[in-house]
Design a protein around this nucleic acid. Sequence first.
DNA 1: CATAATGGCCGAACTAAATTCCGCATCAAT
DNA 2: ATTGATGCGGAATTTAGTTCGGCCATTATG
Lengths: 179, 179
Amino acid sequence: MDVETDDIQRNKPPTREIDPIDRKILGVLVEDATISYAELGERVGLSPPAAHERVKRLKRSGAIRATSAIIDPRAVKKPLLAFVHIDTRGWGKTPELMAVSKYPEVEEIHTVAGDTCMLLKVRTEDTRALEGLLARLYDTPGVTSTRSYVVLSTYLERPVQPEITSEWPAPKHMANPMY
Amino acid sequence: MDVETDDIQRNKPPTREIDPIDRKILGVLVEDATISYAELGERVGLSPPAAHERVKRLKRSGAIRATSAIIDPRAVKKPLLAFVHIDTRGWGKTPELMAVSKYPEVEEIHTVAGDTCMLLKVRTEDTRALEGLLARLYDTPGVTSTRSYVVLSTYLERPVQPEITSEWPAPKHMANPMY
DNA sequence: CATAATGGCCGAACTAAATTCCGCATCAAT
DNA sequence: ATTGATGCGGAATTTAGTTCGGCCATTATG
């Protein structure tokens, strides 16, 4: 058997810096991950095998976490979107609340700073189902109150974008911060 | 303005009812859209061409809106996630606020019912960038105040799930609603 | 009640893309 | 200047995507 000696990359995904071409690749694949490597290569200025190599690297490094079908919520009968803020008594109620992960209606669970403790994004068939989920939340020990924000219309909803705004319009009425 | 005709497929593509096999297909493709039609067919009990036909139909009907690469936010230097609630003076300030769509940091824009008017999901490189975005929001006429909830930890974040919880645990302490 | 028509599936053939291989150029470190 | 490593491109190979024709089941129709 082969015995690995000079094992350079043990714990570190050798996170090679993401260069502009990688970012372009990510931008293309976020829009449409079904295109061929030939077309991907053409769009970013690479040959098909080179583009393929880049994508493999991005997947290995974890930059591309998955390739996923984006579903229309209406098509699967989940037209009601809501954000639920949860206040808890005490600290560290997260493990108990994580139990709601098993419901496919729950899409996001975050802990947040601000006047509330946790924040859920949930998508249900109707208000009855939302009520059922809220009832389930109140059954969790430590949950003191919730506030739900029911979405009326969604104007934008998209995955993580690879681009970054480098220069923000300077708010001239403000002093310059030290950091 | 809108003239109501009996146009069946104005808002609705001729959505043939989604049967259990379709839902299984969606479930598989949400998890991993890179698998072959051979494997997809095997998982849902169909031949490769039959699975292919189903997927084509789901895409045509709009049930599958896109196939997209899911990016690790840290890999693209956007570790700061925040939800921004916006209060506006008056009504219908949406068009103006839609201008922030051009910033790739903005991932979602909703109008919500509750004590606030709009809700944004934004992901930035750091607090400076978040401040820059907030400053941009305050420059929008009609915006009276914002409240930001900065995410400390994300425990769950996933795309729309095709499954639906059919039976919610009945809250026994409640009366039965009429509807 | 029989029959035609439709829709969905399968197996096989065909086409296109993914993947591998190898030589070459570039850059960095010695 | 030399060496090693890294990334790229072109061609060949393997694998998957796609099309085609026939079969079966369900539903509409005379």
